[in-house]
Design a protein around this nucleic acid. Structure first.
Lengths: 339, 339
DNA sequence: AAATGACATGACACCGGTGTCAGAATGGGG
DNA sequence: CCCCATTCTGACACCGGTGTCATGTCATTT
């Protein structure tokens, strides 16, 4: 036998028509139990696998989801944010559980992104994953909406857009962090991240944090805010600049764990002790957070659940069903960096 | 217009036949410049995208590569080895560069793996990524070979199998690590990892290391070898058991960075100072290696290049061309953990 | 014995492209 | 003016399944 076996080959060997083979393989109740068995046997023998292209072409669906990852640019471009990697893992698993394949593509923020996976029938729907602002892409997202493309985003909800976003309750996460520091009486706090609408998630974290502080008559001094994108490198430099500007603080809230790791590195290098001199708290609870020195106190996002929510909600969208809950509840994980 | 536009729609508007549309869109030299332009214009207007299923079905190729990730089981299953994540990133990019899509699937070592991507015409070839031993899968890999499935593996070369493996020169990497420690006069060394054929990569690293030691009349004491799989957790516990067994050493070679991170954590907790009391050296150079405390000396594997090598060699396999170089040269990165 | 229905199967159109082949239109050379 | 080569286009089969409709068989009903 040259080439792969087709349903016609099976039909030939089984002495039935190709139609019957197709039905038998999909366990249609229309086909006789005996022939069904025979067909399955022969199929196994020939190592037959349904041709997905033919099948997808006919049924007009691909049983595939496309995942577009948007990344802040980093110096080494093979470096991916561990948080997204965790998400990627859970999304893959969630897809596998519902029998969907996953197509992956990394997007350069700058480049034109090829969201044509759905147009070209390669995927039934799209998951967009990235830190923060899809604002730059608003126009394109609107176009997707108009076209009727099924997609979900991870990230902060943008009010003016009707698209479906799944996200963590970042605001509440910020509150948790603030509450914890207040309990520790570490209220002279710095913030490393981006406290502007440009990074809706970071912004929400910051606002939750600061609002909680305000409830206690406190506030983050604006001079103690340093901008950073979500890389250890960026966190390192932002923290270093605070230190070199001789700004004093006894606590530091980092908008993400990677930033926190960079911050700890910068503090330690400057001879500032964590947590004795400065308590550090991060956000995300990436895998390595528990193995930093000292282990990092952080706000945990349940990535397993997040991946599941993204996938199931996208499927609901695809099947035109109503959406389930779409807010992930964060949880404070206390480790040595604030003790 | 309901549904997606097809080439027939374009043909209708352009007043030409569907065949011509197809040719025009693929920039066939057979079609007149003017009609080509017109067709392209209308296609853009209708937001037409070639249906991949139809196209793939006809051409019998998918322009897609499948990536199977084999993972050591971890407690939290959303946790992926950062090294593979880096690989994943570079593979994605390499695929994008050559116009291929990437299908991803995580495999549970235990479960039956669905390597039917190629059988079902979903992918033209497969990349297998995992730490160490595909030995457990040997039988299945042989079956793939027989079927003529195109695939490449990442990892140590297994002599008895003719399959194509791309890997880092782990042996040489081990030598580099040993050489470095010898220069530092830290020769009472422990090894955390798996020094058996069961993990060919770790084994090669260990052998390179130990052989280099032997050249200098030294050797790793077998009592100073502790088994660990490639997780920080596993490295932590392995190191802890050495410590609690009161085994003394002034250097530690970890088979991977994750193990090294766990080891540092265990050492620090036991009041053992890195690098003063024990110099620690890892392997992989994962992104966070430079942000541990202290930053980790490690053997760098160029993941960008590795991803490229995997993809280009797989493509050569698919197109029945000869294979290029397939060994990645490692490089020692010296940081504070051995200073 | 004829009619009715359940059950099982085959024939065939169809999904949306690609590739082959035949043929029309044009132009230059003899 | 005819012939032939060149350039462009259309008709059509084909990829390998899926779904619909028609057909055939047999047991059951009246």
């Amino acid at each position: 036998m040259k080439g792969k076996a087709t349903s016609f080959d099976i039909a030939h060997y089984a002495g039935v028509s190709q139609s019957t083979v197709s039905r038998a393989l999909r366990n249609s109740p229309l086909v006789n139990e005996e022939t069904r068995k025979k067909v399955h046997e022969i199929a196994k023998e020939l190592n037959y696998k349904v041709d997905k292209n033919a099948s997808n072409l006919r049924t007009q669906q691909s049983n595939t989801i496309a995942l577009l990852l948007f990344e802040d640019p980093t110096k080494d471009d093979s470096q991916i944010n561990p948080f997204f990697l965790a998400m990627l893992g859970s999304i893959t698993r969630a897809c596998a559980n519902v029998g969907y394949d996953l197509l992956i593509s990394f997007q350069q923020s700058s480049k034109d992104w090829h969201a044509d996976y759905e147009d070209s029938h390669r995927a039934d729907g799209i998951i967009l994953l990235g830190y923060g602002d899809f604002i730059d892409y608003q126009e394109k997202l609107d176009k997707l909406m108009v076209q009727g493309t099924k997609f979900v985003c991870w990230g902060a909800k943008v009010e003016q857009s009707p698209r479906l976003s799944i996200s963590c309750d970042n605001y509440h996460g910020g509150q948790l962090a603030a509450e914890h520091l207040i309990n520790l009486k570490r209220t002279n706090c710095a913030f490393i991240g981006d406290a502007s609408e440009h990074s809706p998630e970071f912004f929400a974290r910051f606002n939750g944090f600061n609002d909680e502080f305000k409830k206690h008559g406190l506030e983050i001094d604006s001079r103690k805010i340093a901008n950073a994108i979500s890389t250890d490198d960026s966190g390192f430099h932002a923290t270093k600049s605070l230190i070199s500007n001789n700004i004093k603080f006894d606590a530091l809230f980092a908008a993400s764990d990677l930033i926190a790791i960079g911050a700890i590195s910068a503090l330690t290098q400057a001879g500032i002790k964590v947590p004795e001199d400065v308590a550090v708290i991060g956000f995300d609870d990436i895998p390595i957070a528990s193995f930093t020195t000292p282990p990092l106190t952080t706000v945990h996002q349940n990535t397993s659940k997040a991946g599941e929510m993204l996938v199931t909600n996208l499927l609901r969208l695809i099947h035109e069903q109503d959406i389930e809950e779409n807010l992930l509840i964060p949880e404070l994980i206390i480790r040595a960096s604030t003790r």
